[in-house]
Nucleic acid binder design. Structure first.
Length: 584
RNA sequence: GCGCCGAUAGCUCAACUGGAUAGAGCAUCAGCCUUCGAAGCUGAGGGUUGGGGGUUCGACUCCCUCUCGGCGCACCA
């Protein structure tokens, strides 16, 4: 599908306005009326009225007269300086329902765009906490949404599996713990316990480090030694331990990704660029953009006081070096039209630097590097920190959410809860749906202060509300005893949907939400659309009986719109990564 | 100190990138379960969009400035 039914009507309206005004159709900007009672599409007359030297309301009235005959399926009413259009419900429904029944509703054909999407990218040897959730669920949603809009998206998990912190970690393991204890932890309780053990010794490292300048220097020296050994590329003790830590971490991450339904096309950590680092540095040197400052290799950035660091005085590489190597790898491997990084806003400077360096190296595609940054997840007490030990572990949150859903299901729908074998699975879908929706419903740039009561609230603008509405719609269809398919739509009497305006419009606006979400890498527009459809659905089946409607014709028409709403709701949730169970 | 990101109803957030009387959810209060599922629905109160200037026919949106909060600021990632 290229153009949605609503967009189709908008084009028709724009065309009629354009010919009446004697301008190009692209100059006509239509918008959504602020108040739905005004109409479906609005045209503000200010600009053209000014050009013509007439009052906007006069122009609106004149255009309404001109268009009366030109648009048989649309009524145009002037309202002050605005011209409001209302599309005939029956005619619109005939176009909309078949479109909404399609699995690719809201989508677009292949666009030729190739997006390399970097998301999740957790650090090895740290437990997956709710702070890591943001990049993971935003990225996964952006991937689905952009794919729906016709892009080829390569999802990459750029694991934090390299860097000097491994020197610290290995020092900590040797000094404050032992490999034998680590192995035991993993064997007896699982990978997650192994990671906790590593975190414990890491925390101990920082406690010792703070004890005094001498102790700090000694630890730092030992850490540097370990990381140098690791970066030497030799098959040594450092490498053996590093591999072990990575493998333990990956097992735990995979368990989480599976629960969240998150997948990647490539799991390729920073370590994968090990052999590209020296050539990358060499390339920069050759380009003549580097200089040595205080023993380190740096690149000056325009408009920034401090230069970007490429290599430390010790000769080890840095974050930027690895991101530079990886962006070239991505360009050469995938020939992306956009490289999008779903990474926290605390790294805005870093990605600005990355793009600036690429530009300095003479590549016009530096402009295709997009940092889709997001606000940080904080606790009411302040910043979350693995080091401080004040984090919410994601699997604990998931367990709490699922427990609560089970409780509610037992109370509200005991029959389902007790007799259906899938109820446990559904509880997990709803619990996780609540967590994902909570993260995706707002503009990604805003910080989120984590509050248990907020995440575990299932009323109102929440994932479970959308899922519940979906289950209600599914329940009506199930009770009807019929399966509504596309082939049923041709014989419907669409005039029976003349009173379904708000629900029709909520469904009709879904494609535009997907489009804007894809263009801006902002999933919350899709979440908003899902909520709108859910609200409109609740209002619809409150006011319109479906199964015991006055005539078979009305029943058929209402079942069709119920199914269209259900499919669109399911589709919107699916794009967000949220399951849409038919019963809960 | 410099830079970046924010500030919208008591709380959490929208507002189609400049258009109409700034909308939702939560919370509060008042109602609705013998009718397709009450995780629902209806109604009410609640706003000088942080303050001040400017641009514009029109500003939550753009510019300047101040205040507050968050985050960065060279060998961590």
């Amino acid at each position: 599908m290229t153009v949605s039914p609503l967009q189709q009507f908008q084009r028709t309206i724009a065309g009629a306005l354009a010919s009446s005004l004697g301008v190009d159709a692209t100059a006509i900007l239509l918008e959504k009326p602020r108040d739905a009672n005004h109409g479906d599409v609005a045209f503000p007359c200010f600009r053209f009225a000014k050009e013509r030297g007439v009052a906007p309301p006069a122009l609106a009235a004149k255009l309404a007269g001109d268009l009366a005959s030109a648009l048989p399926s649309v009524s145009a009413k002037p309202a002050g300086p605005f011209l409001n259009f209302t599309i005939d419900r029956a005619i619109f429904a005939r176009e909309l329902l078949p479109a909404a029944f399609r699995a690719d509703f809201g989508g677009a054909p292949p666009s030729g765009e190739v997006i390399v999407l970097d998301y999740s990218s957790p650090n090895i040897a740290k437990r997956f906490h709710v702070g890591h959730l943001r990049s993971t669920v935003i990225g996964a949603a952006v991937k689905r949404i952009c794919e729906a809009r016709g892009a080829r998206v390569v999802g990459i998990n750029h694991l934090g599996d390299w860097g000097s912190q491994f020197g610290k970690l290995l020092t900590a393991l040797r000094r404050f713990g032992s490999e034998a204890d680590l192995d035991k932890a993993v064997e007896t309780e699982g990978p997650w316990r192994g990671i906790e053990y590593l975190q414990d010794v890491y925390v101990q490292y920082h406690i010792e480090e703070k004890k005094g300048a001498d102790a700090g220097r000694e630890l730092a020296a030992e850490s540097r030694k370990w990381f140098l050994e690791l970066e030497s590329g030799a098959d040594n003790e450092a490498r053996r331990l590093w591999k072990k830590l990575t493998s333990i971490s990956m097992k735990e991450f995979e368990r989480i990704y599976q629960k969240l339904g998150v997948t990647f096309d490539e799991v390729r950590g920073e370590s994968a660029y090990e052999k590209d680092l020296a050539p990358t540095i060499e390339m920069c040197k050759k380009a003549g953009v580097t200089r040595v400052s205080e023993g380190a290799l740096v690149i000056e950035i325009d408009g920034q006081e401090k230069p970007a660091l490429l290599q430390t005085g010790d000769g080890t590489t840095l974050y930027l070096t690895r991101d530079l190597a990886s962006v070239f790898y991505r360009k050469n491997t995938y020939h992306f039209t956009k490289a999008v990084y779903v990474v926290g806003g605390d790294q805005l400077d870093h990605f600005k630097e990355l793009a600036a360096v690429v530009k300095k190296l003479g590549h016009a595609w530096s402009g295709d590097i997009v940092h889709a940054h997001f606000g940080m997840m904080r606790l009411p007490e302040g910043k979350m920190s693995t080091r401080e030990g004040n984090v919410i572990i994601l699997s604990d949150l998931i367990d709490s959410a699922v427990d609560k859903v089970n409780e509610i299901m037992l109370e509200k729908n005991p029959n389902f809860s007790n007799t259906n074998r899938n109820s446990g699975e559904v509880a997990e879908q709803v619990g996780i749906g609540a967590i994902i929706y909570h993260d995706l419903k707002q503009d990604r740039r805003r910080d989120i202060v984590f509050k248990w009561d907020d995440v575990l609230n299932f009323d109102g603008d929440t994932g479970p509300y959308c899922q519940y509405t979906h289950a209600r719609l599914a329940s009506i269809l199930k009770k009807s005893g019929r399966a509504i398919s596309e082939s049923d739509l041709g014989s419907l009497n669409y005039t029976m949907l003349a009173d379904a305006g708000p629900l029709l419009m909520a469904i009709a606006r879904f494609p535009a939400a997907v489009e804007i979400a894809a263009a801006r890498f902002e999933p919350h527009h899709v979440a908003q659309s899902a909520f709108d459809i859910a609200q409109a659905s609740n209002a619809f089946y409150r006011d319109h009986r479906v199964l015991d409607a006055p005539s078979p014709e009305v029943v058929a028409a209402r079942l069709a719109i119920v199914e269209a709403a259900r499919r669109t709701l399911e589709r919107s949730l699916q794009l967000l990564g949220i399951a849409a169970p038919r019963e809960m």
